[in-house]
Each structure stands twice: as C-alpha cells, then as structure tokens.
C-alpha cells in the first residue's frame, strides 16, 4: 500500500531542498503525524466499510443461506443472483430501471440547484418586506413529518392527471420544495463577505448579475454538496415513486428491488442483495466523481475576506 511510500517521498523531496537541521526535525515530525493520520483513517475506514463488504460477499450467497449462514463468507458461492437479476423482472430488463432512476435523479439535480440557489439568494442577500416571515415558513416546512401530507398531495396530482408520470417526482424539485437545500445554500451565502457584491453594486450591477457572476462561483462547494445529496436521495427515494408510478416499466430501482420479495409467498434475498449492490454502484461513482470538486471549491480561488 502507498501508506508508507507517500510520506517518505515527500520527506526526501523536501529534505534535499531544505537541508537545514531544525527544519528537518520539523519535517520529520510532520511525516510522523502524516503516518499516524493515515493509520487512523485506514482503521476507521475498515470499520465503516465492513458492513458493505459483508453485503458484497452476501450477493454471492444462494438465497437459502440467508437464515442459516450469518458469516461473511458464502458457504456455496454462486453468481446465480447476478445471472438472475441481469435478466430483469417480468419482462423488463434491469437497465431500464437504472435508466428510469438516472433520468429522475438528473432532472431532480437540475431542478433543485436552479430553484434552491435562486431562493437562497433572495433569503440571504435581498432586503424586502416579508422576507423574515417567508424564511420562517420555509423552515416550517421542514418540521412536519411528510406522511401526513402524502394524501392531499396525491389528490392534487391525481386531479391534475399527472399520476403515472414522472411529473409529481420532478416538478417539486424545480419549485424548491426541499427546504433543506434552500437553507443549506442560505447558510453558505451568508458566510460570503459582502465587500464584493457591494463593490459590484457601486459599479451598477443588479441582483441578477451579482448572483450569477459573484455569488454562484463562490458557493460552489454548497452547490456540489446539494447536487450530490439530491442525486443520491432521489436515487434512493421509495415513497414518491411508489405512490405515483403505476407502470412497472417506469419503476425506478428502489421499487424494482423490492419486487424480489413477497412475504406472502417466496422471497429471493440473494437477488435482492445483488440488485441493492448494483444499485449502489452508480451513486458511488457519482460521488467519487463529484467529491473532487469539493476540494477545489472556494479555497483555491481565495476569499479576499
């Protein structure tokens, strides 16, 4: 593993540049710190990842092992679970469920970023009558358990004849109904010093220009965070599609992977595990790709605050 190599390389490189004795000791201490840091993180990673590794191994267990073999290793390893799930469910190929989920999630990300950032800017930077009341209302929508508003919302979408379409899943995202993201972005905008937008205002810039050319670039970490969460949470959303989608070919993954279980007859837990694991991969890749942007967010651009 690279744990040992990396710090050593750094040490050598720097030490040839800076041969001075006290400096060397400091670098040595830094190297020791880095090693400790690495070891600590690796240990934590191992603990955190163990259940996922268990899950991966479980995808190779035949269905009958689930009640009888609680261990990590399958007793009779098999790839049957994958063979079965790749065939799809009742005539619908597996990729179709992935495509459905992907479509909904991508639309949700676009909608949430667009609408939440606009609303957040208004709440954080514009002084107008009623802003406080509206902000309180927005926080208020976070507090109510969503179960009690399911039925009235269903009635509305049913009246609009939008049931069995993706609209009830996507439209709310374009209307910033997830206060979580509005509030998140508000907090980040409020943390940006006002010097820059005030300078821009003196130059005659309006709110639209300030928003697009000053604020948006500065809240990149918040936007990336919102994008990641929206994608993952939409990908995993179960209740929305359950209520609004009737046609099995249009089901997203969370519904599809339940279709291997029927408590009233037989359940294929092996297949369930395999689909669950496959369903993890796209969002894992999404996260790996996008988490990089968290690093080169604001910090590298420098905040002159």
């Amino acid at each position: 593993m690279s744990t040992i190599e990396v710090p050593r390389a750094e040490f050598l490189e720097i030490s040839t540049d800076q041969p001075a004795q006290p400096r060397r000791r400091r670098i040595k201490r830094k190297t020791v710190n880095t090693v400790i840091w690495m070891v600590a993180l690796l240990a934590l990673t191992a603990i955190v990842l163990y259940p996922l590794v268990w899950m991966l191994f479980a995808t190779f267990k035949p269905s009958s092992e689930f009640g009888q073999n609680p261990g990590l290793m399958p007793e009779n390893p098999t790839v049957d679970n994958y063979v079965k799930v790749v065939e799809g469910i009742a005539g619908t190929p597996l990729w179709r469920f992935f495509a459905n989920s992907l479509f909904i999630a991508v639309m949700a990300v676009i909608g949430t970023l667009f609408s939440s950032a606009l609303a957040a800017y208004a709440f954080a930077r514009i002084k107008f009558r009623g802003v406080g009341l509206l902000f309180a209302a927005m926080i208020g929508t976070l507090l109510l358990p969503f179960h009690v508003i399911i039925i009235p919302q269903y009635i509305m979408f049913n009246k609009l004849e939008l049931v069995d379409t993706y609209w009830p899943l996507i439209l709310p995202k374009f209307l910033a109904t997830e206060a979580f993201f509005v509030f998140l972005i508000v907090q980040f905008i409020r943390n940006i010093p006002r010097d820059m937008d005030e300078a821009a205002r003196i130059d005659g810039a309006g709110h639209l220009r300030i928003f697009f050319s000053i604020i948006l670039p500065l809240i990149k970490p918040a936007l990336i965070t919102s994008a990641i969460f929206t994608f993952i949470w939409t990908w995993n959303d179960f209740l929305g599609p359950l209520l609004y989608i009737n046609t099995p070919e249009e089901y997203p993954l969370p519904i599809a992977l339940k279709l291997y279980n029927d408590q009233t007859s037989t359940s294929d837990y092996g297949a369930t595990m395999a689909v669950s694991f496959l369903a993890l991969l796209p969002i894992l890749i999404f996260f790996i790709v996008f988490q990089r942007f968290l690093v080169d967010g604001v910090a590298t651009q420098g905040l002159k605050g």
Binding site: A90, I150, I151, Y154, I155, N158, V163, L242, L243, N246, T247, P248, I255, K258, L259, N261, D262, Q263, T264
Partner: peptide
C-alpha cells in the same frame, strides 16, 4: 391489460392512498 405489481405492504399503502384520492385500478 396493463399490469402493475408490488410487495404486499407497499401494495396496500398505495391502494389506501388511491382510495382516499379517488383512483383505484
């Protein structure tokens, strides 16, 4: 015939909502 299927608990959760909202299959 357009079929639609779910696991037992989800099936009834959906039916209850449809019953309240007017729209059973």
């Amino acid at each position: 015939v357009n079929t639609s299927f779910l696991g037992f608990p989800e099936y009834w959760e959906k039916r209850q909502t449809e019953a309240a909202g007017g729209g059973l299959p």
